[in-house]
Design a protein around this nucleic acid. Structure first.
Ligand SMILES: [Zn+2]
Ligand SMILES: [Zn+2]
Ligand SMILES: [Zn+2]
Ligand SMILES: [Zn+2]
Lengths: 159, 159
DNA sequence: ACATAAAACGTTATGATATAACAATACATA
DNA sequence: TATGTATTGTTATATCATAACGTTTTATGT
């Protein structure tokens, strides 16, 4: 079962987001024969502590609580796996990482990022993807990868 | 007069791109009362040496040829000015900078970036901007800033 | 169960990108 | 020319990311 897209209400049951994300990851790894190891699981857990994207060194800080702080490589390697497996995304413009809310199928994510509360939400890509495709086609350009990061204010912070 | 959008043919007269970009910058600075100083001009010249975005330290390398290599701050400060003035853009996903090809009016740029030759082209934002707006609106999100960077293969490199 | 090879991990070191802070200089304008 | 403001020069440091290599764990064939 996939998590929802879009921004979650402040009152939502976030434990469900977490457990669902981890179950999805287990399941996807099992199906694809990927090794969802302890470190990788822990990093994904940390990413899902909130809907706010985290920098690699913030992730390190939070891993530290379970003992001594690991070296940066540990986190970057785990992140490489999670990105590769489609279980997390990188947000280039903020140099941060976030758990994928719809890991069922691999996809490139398009994000809305709130500059007030720091949360980020994936948005459905289809209409956007078409607009990108059209734009590229008219320039004779062949798309391989899309980076779409929209910065602004989320509905929760507007209220 | 504005430079063109889209990818330039390999045979195009690039000297015109350069002179036009610098003239535009002079003019815009004059009109807005900005100080288009020697360093800022030199950095913009370096950015316009090609249609390929450059990292800050690549820019430094190229400034070096006119004497000793300045400190990174020099380039980052000049870039801050150029970005602020709408004379250049940052491409987050590549950590690079490129001269703006349509500096007449301030705008956020959307880029096509060729992973084969490294060149990048601004594309007309209107249809895309509408798609983004629609997507955001349906999530109740208020847009302040857009990052759209499409990676793929340019028409020149497909031929 | 055992041997073997591949994958993942731990650790140290280093590279690449970006900013802070402050003194010195150039510039606008009164 | 005097005065305040913007820009520059310089040193140091913060932040983000990867290289390299030896050890441990895991999967697989015998
Ligand atoms: Zn949640
Ligand atoms: Zn918010
Ligand atoms: Zn040109
Ligand atoms: Zn190309």
């Amino acid at each position: 079962m996939a998590n929802h897209m879009g921004f979650q209400a402040p009152t939502h049951d976030h434990k469900r987001c977490v457990s669902s994300a981890l179950e999805n990851a287990e399941e996807k790894s099992r199906v694809l024969g990927l090794r969802f190891t302890k470190t990788r699981r822990k990093v994904l857990e940390v990413l899902w502590q909130s809907h706010n994207p985290l920098g690699a060194y913030e992730i390190l800080d939070r891993l530290q609580k379970d003992g001594r702080r690991p070296a940066p490589m540990v986190v970057y390697r785990a992140l490489d796996f999670l990105l590769e497996a489609g279980l997390a995304h990188k947000i280039s413009s903020c140099k941060t990482f976030i758990g994928c809310s719809t890991p069922d199928e691999n996809h490139e994510a398009q994000f809305l990022i709130c500059e007030s509360c720091g949360s980020a939400a994936e948005v459905a890509g289809q209409p956007l993807a078409e607009a990108l495709e059209k734009t590229a086609a008219s320039a004779g350009f062949k798309i391989n990868q899309r980076v779409v990061e929209i910065i602004g204010v989320c509905p929760n912070c507007q209220a």
